[in-house]
Amino acid sequence: MIIKVVVTLKNGVLDPQGKAIQQTLNGMNFSSVDDVRQGKFFEININENDETKAKLQVEDMCKKLLANLVIEDYKIL
């Protein structure tokens, strides 16, 4: 099965890329954009039939590799 994960910077952590994207959007006349936070998206194809077990493994992967918990949060979708 495929488990999807989103990793984003924690609130309060400076996101220079997000800021640059926001400024560009504003410059393209999307003037209502107040803030952009960018992140990473993973699709993990895991050989496991039990969704709960698969998600537990992916959670472990997030903590050990996919996210750096000093600055990032992860969300298993």
Binding site: V13, Q17, V70
Partner: peptide
């Protein structure tokens, strides 16, 4: 070592 090296502030 603690912490992390993030992207430079001015990209």
């Amino acid at each position: 070592l603690p912490g992390i090296l993030q992207q430079n502030k001015y990209l």
